[in-house]
Write a protein that binds this DNA or RNA. Structure first.
Length: 823
DNA sequence: AGCACGCCGACT
DNA sequence: GTCGGCGTGCTC
């Protein structure tokens, strides 16, 4: 096979007539990865109406598909395919027209796409469909031709209908630069973003079921395009949506600039960014050493990894920024990536503050489609010209095109959200490593509580670790205190009396407190006093959580909800006992207990559903409009409030008993991070952790902020129980619809096949056991845990298992390598 | 995703 | 007898 290079000229000419013809025939077949369904990679002839040398891998093209020749956008995967790679008996269609003059994607980018495709076991087109912004994978573009008299605009499908001679004329205009590719017509349904404008309960008649359905859907799914909503809810939702829009309960339309701003970066004005003015300009010796270690990694002629292990406030960001500058000065690109939009924005702002005028770009998922498209195009152009850029963003920025990547920095590398994404499940660390490996750059992992696997790699000598052990500016670590709540006398709240006292003292002094409770809603369990049953989700069999403000019982796994009050599903009774306590109730309880005039704010997924709400809440708390902020783990990340002197972890045990080998590790990380919220200002802070198990080994390490001690203990436990980093772990998830009678038999049959090939390949197979959530969204779920010495064997096993399931089967199986949550 | 082809209920 | 429902299957 002959692959054309970037500037694709035919690789060779053969002068003798006949042979040249044969060669040209070969060169005139390309394979195209479709970026829209069916996402396959298909072969096409190159058309005679455009010059041969313009086609090359990475070029986006429009191709006809199917009997009616409807157009799809695709990317040329390879040029000059041998005719024998084309399946027999298919008549090749011709590529219709290119979508651009120069290829959007370079060879390195295509290689990344191929790798991802292999790893996810999906066609490359599907990967492209996920990585490129919508406008760049649409065949709906128009061409503006400036030739002769007045310019005309034509759609690509008009070209499909043209006579050959006409196409040749157009082609000559194209080659002479008289044609411009216009952006695809913006799809109104795609551009209209719908979101709820008021918190529940909403003033809607109970009889208006469709309106309630729309509101609940939007509440559950956040701002979504009208297209997606109608797709999910059916076109029947159109009328109720318009009614709601008219009544002002729902906003429909493009997000205006102000809202878009607040959606992503309003956080800047809400939180004080750390005082870089004082700290950053002079690096401490430790920071200098860390910086040197990182720049060495950039300069070496192989790709290298560094762990930057530093407690909160030890000045990691300053090192990142100096590293970024060093890279740019050498003409290399840099990516600074954070696990959350707000943190990414903060990094970006830090860059702007520190190095005004540097070519920096902010990229995250909350930007408009058009914005992302422009960014992608811009970066691709810079990459083609080899100009270095600095990208600050969330992990989705990993997939932007850049030239000569000097370094990728993953801040908070232990964060689980570096693994998961709704559309694409990937390990940011692995993709980042792949990208720096391509350019022999450096991967810098930063964390105060590194992933156990990462730290193990350091200990084993696979990567150098750099320690920043002192807080810049000499702030002290907060004192950590355990409160036993096993025999809590006060039943109304999970907060023990002494905790309450401490909270009251704090707010009376005019200081602030944050309270972490990792359960949203009002009450996680609703107990029917008439029949003694607990309200459960009909789809998931999981307990429904009472949301008081919303007047509904909600399933936290699938989002299904029922109005409350409504009769018990079992006995039609109407008397319930709410049990347990979520953030909503804690907020309510606390506000009745505080001294007069002291207020409570709440930060969780429910209070921040409307665009901009999170920033408003954080800003109000930063302005000290309230004394207490109650919230889920959302509030443990990176925010900096100088007046907070007390952090309370209301239930330190959540997570310790989860069915996940990483539960302890994650509890440790979360709690250390939460502890970092207190005492970041002038006044010393303290932390209270409430627990039913004060003897658990992890508390001592948390109290002393002793990561390494914790690491040793945890590693020993994993060695004993054969968990990563000592083995590779994967989960095969199986599910079938509950109404499928043969389901159980099929699962059993598949399971014995998997166990058999497991024995053959040396993979230990556990299960299948019912998943921790045995029923979800109407499907019964099982999982098989696989332990092997390498990933390849696991993939082989999964491939074999999937071969054994007919395509028509209602049994679904998916492979999760190194599962982040085992639920 | 579209759009074909292909087998079973309420109509001229 | 036909029109039409949407259940599988393919697209170079």
């Amino acid at each position: 096979m002959i692959l054309c290079g970037r500037r694709c000229r035919p690789l060779f000419f053969v002068t003798s007539g006949n042979r040249q013809l044969v060669m040209n025939e070969n060169l005139r077949i390309v394979s195209v990865s479709l970026m829209a369904p069916p996402y396959t990679t298909l072969h096409y002839r190159l058309p005679e109406w455009l010059p041969e040398e313009m086609w090359c891998a990475g070029l986006r093209v429009a191709v006809p598909l199917g009997a009616r020749g409807t157009l799809r956008a695709g990317v040329i995967a390879a040029c000059g395919c041998a005719p024998d790679t084309v399946p027999q008996g298919v008549e090749l269609k011709a590529v219709l027209w290119p979508l651009e003059f120069v290829p959007l994607l370079g060879e390195e980018y295509l290689e990344m796409v191929r790798q991802l495709a292999v790893r996810q076991m999906v066609p490359p087109g599907q990967i492209l469909g996920m990585l490129l912004p919508a406008g760049l994978r649409s065949a709906g573009v128009r061409l503006r031709v400036r030739a002769g008299g007045r310019p005309r605009t034509l759609r690509l499908r008009d070209i499909a209908k043209m006579a050959d001679s006409e196409r040749h004329v157009l082609a000559s205009h194209w080659s002479a630069g008289r044609v411009e590719v216009l952006e695809p017509e913006t799809d109104e349904a795609e551009n209209d973003i719908c979101h709820v404008t008021a918190d529940p309960p909403w003033p809607v008649r109970p009889a208006a079921r469709r309106q309630t359905e729309v509101l609940e859907y939007l509440w559950e799914n956040g701002p979504v395009s009208r297209r997606r909503m109608l797709h999910d809810l059916g076109t029947g939702a159109q009328t109720p949506l318009l009614t709601l829009a008219e009544r002002g309960l729902v906003h429909v339309g493009p997000l205006d600039a102000e809202q878009a701003e607040v959606c992503g970066c309003g956080i800047d004005s809400a939180c004080h960014t750390e005082a870089f003015e004082n700290q950053l300009f002079e690096l401490t010796d430790a920071q200098q050493a860390a910086l040197r270690a990182c720049t060495d990694a950039v300069e070496s002629d192989s790709a290298e990894t560094r762990l930057l292990f530093g407690i909160t406030g030890s000045g990691k960001t300053a090192v990142y920024l100096e590293l970024a500058r060093a890279c740019l000065e050498k003409g290399l690109s840099v990516m600074l990536l954070a696990p959350e939009v707000a943190l990414a924005c903060k990094l970006y702002r830090d860059v702007q503050l520190r190095f005004p005028g540097l070519p920096a770009v902010l990229y995250h998922g909350y930007q408009s489609a058009h914005e992302r498209e422009q960014q992608f195009l811009n970066l691709a152009a810079q990459a083609r010209e080899g100009r270095p850029v600095l990208i600050a963003g969330t992990r989705s920025a990993l997939f932007l095109p850049v030239a000569s990547l000097g370094a990728v920095v993953l801040d908070e590398e232990h964060d689980a959200s570096f693994k998961q994404d709704e559309r694409l499940s990937y390990q940011a660390k692995e993709v980042a490593w792949f990208r720096v490996a391509q350019s022999k750059g450096a991967l810098v992992l930063g964390s105060a509580t590194p992933d156990v696997k990462t730290f193990h790699a350091v200990r084993e000598g696979h990567m150098p670790g750099i320690v920043l052990s002192e807080r810049v500016g000499g702030g002290t670590l907060p004192a950590v205190e355990l409160v036993n709540i096993k025999d809590n006398a006060v039943k109304e709240t999970i907060l023990a009396p002494q905790t309450l006292t401490r909270i009251k003292e704090t707010v009376t002094r005019g200081e602030q407190a944050v309270i972490l409770l990792n359960r949203r809603g009002y009450a996680p369990l609703m107990y029917c006093l008439d029949c003694g049953s607990v309200a459960r989700c009909p789809e998931c069999e999981i307990g429904l959580t009472y949301h008081k403000g919303r007047e509904r019982l909600v399933c936290h796994y699938c989002g299904h909800s029922v109005p409350f009050p409504s009769p018990c599903a079992k006995c039609r009774g109407v008397h319930y006992l709410p049990m347990g306590e979520g953030t909503e109730k804690l907020e309510e309880t606390l506000s009745t207990m505080l001294p007069h005039g002291k207020k409570v704010l709440r930060l969780d997924r429910d209070s921040t559903r409307r665009p901009g709400r999170m920033e408003q809440i954080l800003a109000a708390f930063a302005r000290e409009e309230s004394s207490i902020l109650v919230g889920t783990q959302m509030l443990s990340k990176g925010h900096h409030f100088p007046s907070v002197t007390l952090a309370v972890v209301a239930d330190g045990d959540i997570g310790l008993n989860m069915p996940d080998y990483r539960a302890t590790e994650r509890t440790f990380q979360l709690l250390v991070q939460a502890a970092g919220r207190a005492g970041r200002g002038e006044r010393p802070g303290s932390v209270i952790i409430q627990t039913r198990d004060p003897a658990h080994y992890c508390w001592d390490y948390i109290r002393n902020c002793d990561y390494e001690g914790f690491f040793e203990k945890e590693l020993e436990a994993r060695r004993k129980r054969r968990y990563p980093p000592f083995v590779k772990l994967a989960l095969i998830r199986l599910s079938y619809p509950m109404d499928w009678p043969q389901g159980q038999d099929r699962v059993n049959a598949l399971a014995s096949a998997v166990r058999a090939s497991g024995r053959e390949l040396g993979v230990s197979v556990l299960g299948p056991a019912p998943a921790p959530l045995p029923v979800l969204r109407g499907r019964r779920r099982f999982q098989c845990l696989l332990k092997a010495s390498d990933w390849k064997t696991i993939r082989m096993l999964f491939h074999a298992a999937r071969q054994g399931v007919p395509a028509s089967s209602r049994l679904r199986l998916s492979l999760d390598l190194d599962p982040v949550n085992m639920l």
